[in-house]
Write a protein that binds this DNA or RNA. Structure first.
Lengths: 222, 222
DNA sequence: TAATCAATGATAGTTTTGCTATTATTTTTG
DNA sequence: CAAAAATAATAGCAAAACTATCATTGATTA
């Protein structure tokens, strides 16, 4: 068991109606929703199918999550929460440059060892394919006010601080961070589905090489 | 009337069941769908509401577009098609550096004069807020094979060629282009809805300044 | 041990959406 | 003008997204 696995990743309570990590049914729902969102995609995913997969009823699913949007939000939050934990644990040692390099490696996952379990790989695919659908919504302002996107903002600002520690003159830290964070996820989508708009093959991890170049070339010029 | 407006932007025929630009009803549908997608968002948008807004019936809408996904795809394609036309018209003069700078200005729209009409501003907002929803789909591979995303790929490759003309040693041209293209759209979303993860205010157009820096710093280091 | 209470199961029902079908009417075109 | 195409009007269906009710079970506690 990894060090990271010993920590309870905190996910904002309000997202779920009750804490799914606390009960056996709740865990079954999370487990199966990860599989189903990955296999069916957000549009084809329904609570009915989830209930069937988790051997329960639709009504019971609604007792944990008020909608499939909220359930997806819960999973996405879990992803960013876990990433934040890893950053806090692993990117605190060394000089600013080392810390920044470590952090970059964590968020871009160059070595697949970071995604050790099948569910972790599924979860990353879900973030890549589905996360925008709970962000790009008319409800985003409300959601953000409620704190539903705070974990993501925290990750961004953690990385922004690392950048400032390395290069205090950097003007556009947040833009730089989100460009890399979102870009690296998007490249993995393109690699699989629109290969002609990327130069990345999963093997040699061009994604990591490119964004590392991009980051440090930008910062060295400041 | 602008030069650009004299051209018929070609949108792949197969996306629509019949060409909406060719009839009065079709034009009304496009016009109103732009307004409604912008105001309601993809999720709340329905053909029933569109029919009502365009003073027609649901069944008639279905004779033009087989689903609201296809209609959105049509609008998004129109956006990229128009951008491609502008690039071909305006970014062909001068030395490689000038051409690249012009192209960057076109895709990032630093001066709002480029978005002269209300509908153009609406269309860009639609691309920012809704476009990912027709890309991040289980149907993406089929769609791409049918050519539904070809215009986007063409824009990317046009820009990639400009970069190679300026800096032949650049290894990751496509990744660089999509990072800037998608990033710049995303920053505008963040600016409005998650301001703490960006450094951009709509006024001074930090988006343009930042991505120009990012691009040329990256290329000068090659 | 009995009473209680929270969680779950079982079932049914409502509304909306997404889509199809049919027929009538209008408009276009040869 | 006649034929064909486009549109309107209307109805209807299946599935999805919930909501509601009541019975059951299993754990807690008096």
């Amino acid at each position: 068991m990894n060090l990271i696995d010993r920590f309870q990743i905190p996910v904002l309570e309000q997202i779920a109606l009750r804490n799914p990590q606390a009960t056996s049914l709740g865990k079954r729902l999370i487990e199966n929703s990860i599989i189903l969102f990955d296999e069916l995609g957000f549009e084809q995913f329904t609570f009915k199918k989830l209930a069937q997969a988790a051997a329960t009823t639709e009504a019971s699913v609604y007792r944990y999550f008020s909608s499939k949007q909220k359930l997806l939000l819960y999973l996405v939050n879990w992803y960013w929460g876990r990433l934040e934990c890893r950053l806090l644990l692993e990117a605190q040692a060394g000089d600013p440059k080392e810390r920044l390099e470590t952090a970059l490696a964590i968020i871009i996952n160059p070595n697949s060892a970071d995604l050790s379990t099948a569910n972790e790989r599924r979860l990353q695919r879900i973030v890549i394919h589905e996360a925008p659908k709970v962000l790009l919504t008319k409800a985003v302002d409300n959601d953000h006010q409620t704190g539903y996107h705070q974990t993501y903002a925290d990750v961004v600002n953690f990385l922004a601080k690392l950048i400032l520690a390395y290069q205090p003159n950097c003007n556009f830290t947040q833009m730089l961070v989100t460009t890399i964070l979102e870009g690296s996820l998007q490249q993995r989508f393109f690699a699989q589905h629109l290969p002609e708009v990327t130069n990345c093959s999963e093997q040699e991890d061009a994604v990591y090489v490119f964004y590392k170049q991009l980051l440090f070339k930008y910062l060295h010029h400041e």
